[in-house]
Design a protein around this nucleic acid. Structure first.
Lengths: 205, 205
DNA sequence: TAGATTGTTAATCGATTAACAATC
DNA sequence: TAGATTGTTAATCGATTAACAATC
C-alpha cells in the first residue's frame, strides 16, 4: 500500500456508510455503478479508489456488500472499538456522550473531561466527568488515542496541547479554530457554520 | 465572477474564521503568508483564491483584516442573518438550539420541528417545538431557506423531501446518509464518525 | 454463450505552486 | 530609497474520467 492519496482515504468512510445502509436493507451485492449513483460519484472513481487496497470485486457480479464492508473496516482500522475522550461537557459534549451511533462504527466514549468544578463529578451516560487535571493520567491508563474536542474556541489550543502531551494521536475539533499540533497528531475539523456559509454563497438573496 | 471552483468557496469560511480571530486580537493587518502559516495553506493559494473576487490587498502592507473580513462576508452572503430551521430536537437538536455562535457568523435558529408528540410544544431557547405537519407553512411564513437536519438516518430522506418542497435551498445534514435532493437544493454533510475513521486509517494499532 | 462489471491504463481535466513584475 | 507583499502568469503536479481487455 504505497502512497495512497489522503483524499481517497477521506472517501472510504463514505463508501462504508453506504455499504452499511445496504447491509441493513439485506442487499447482498452491489456494483461501482450503483454505489456511485447513490453517492453522486463516478463509478470509475470508486473502482480506482478501491484498487489502491486490493481486488474486492468480481467481473460480471460486482462486490459482495458484507465482504467489501469488512475489508474497508479493516483498511480504516475500525474493525475494533477505539476508546475516545470527550473534552468539554457543555450542550455539545452532552449530545456526544449520549450518542448511540459510535459503537457500530468503531468507537466508544471512554471518558469525559471538563474544567468547570460544577461539572466535574457529574454522571453522564454511565461515566463520571473528570477534571482536566486528571486527564493525562486517565488517557494513559485507558490507552486513549482519539479525542473529541468540544470546548470554547479560546480554550481549544491549550487543551489540544495537553491531549498531544498525553499521547493522543487524533483530534476531532468542534471549536471554530485551526489548531497547531505536533506532526504525529492528526486533526479533523467540524465547523457547521463553515458548511452553512459555503452554501449561502450559492443562495441568491 | 465567472466559474469559481467550489473548492475555493469551501475555503473562504476558513479564511473568514481566521480573520475573525485576528479581529478579536485587534490585529489590523495581515498577509497571505501569515494567514497561510496559521491555516497550513500556501500563501500563493490564498492570494489566488481571493483574486477570483477582486483585489483586496496592498503591495508591501498586505490585507486590512477588517476590510477583508467584510468583503469575504459579502461574498459568502453572510453580511446578514439567515433564519434557519432545525428539524429533530433530540440531544443534538437541543445543542444546536442552544448554540450561541450562529449570530456572529450570519445565521440564527428561527424554528424547531419534530415528529414526537412528547416534544411538540416543548419550549427551547425561546422557541416552541412545532410539528412537522406545520413545517411547510412555517418555513414559508418565516422565509426560511436554510435548514439543519438532526433526525435519525431512517427519517432523513423523507424530511429532506419535505424541506425541498417547502422551498429550503440549503440543508446541513447530520444524519449519516447521503441524501437525494433536487438540483436547486444544496446539501452539506456533518458526519463526525467519518472524520474519526479518516484519522484511524493513519493510526498504527 | 451473451451480458455485465471489474481493475487498470492512458488521456483529460483541474488545482496548486513557483516565480516575478508591479507597486505600496 | 529599500523592503515587503500583492495579483497574475505559466509550469507543475495530482486527481478524475474514459475506455477497454479480462473474465466472471
Amino acid at each position: 500500500m504505497p502512497h495512497i492519496p489522503d483524499i481517497v482515504i477521506g472517501r472510504l468512510p463514505i463508501y462504508l456508510r453506504a455499504l452499511n445502509r445496504m447491509l441493513e436493507d439485506e442487499q447482498e451485492y452491489t456494483s461501482s455503478h450503483e454505489l456511485g449513483e447513490r453517492l453522486g460519484i463516478s463509478s470509475a472513481q470508486i473502482r480506482k479508489d478501491l484498487s489502491h487496497f486490493g481486488e474486492f470485486g468480481k467481473q460480471g457480479t460486482g462486490y459482495h456488500v458484507e465482504y467489501l464492508a469488512d475489508q474497508v473496516k479493516q483498511i480504516l482500522h475500525v474493525d475494533r472499538e477505539w476508546p475516545m475522550a470527550v473534552v468539554g461537557v457543555g450542550d455539545l459534549g452532552h449530545a456526544i456522550a449520549h450518542y448511540k451511533g459510535f459503537k457500530a462504527r468503531g468507537f466508544y466514549v471512554a471518558c469525559l473531561f471538563d474544567t468547570d468544578p460544577d461539572k466535574i463529578g457529574e454522571k453522564l451516560a454511565e461515566l463520571t466527568v473528570k477534571s482536566i487535571e486528571d486527564m493525562h493520567d486517565e488517557l494513559q491508563r485507558l490507552n486513549v488515542k482519539v479525542a473529541m474536542l468540544a470546548v470554547p474556541a479560546k480554550a481549544a489550543q491549550n487543551v489540544a496541547n495537553l491531549l498531544a502531551q498525553a499521547g493522543v494521536r487524533a483530534i476531532l475539533n468542534y471549536a471554530p479554530i485551526t489548531l497547531a499540533v505536533p506532526p504525529n497528531v492528526r486533526v479533523q475539523y467540524i465547523d457547521p457554520v463553515a458548511h452553512l456559509q459555503h452554501m449561502t454563497f450559492y443562495l441568491k438573496p
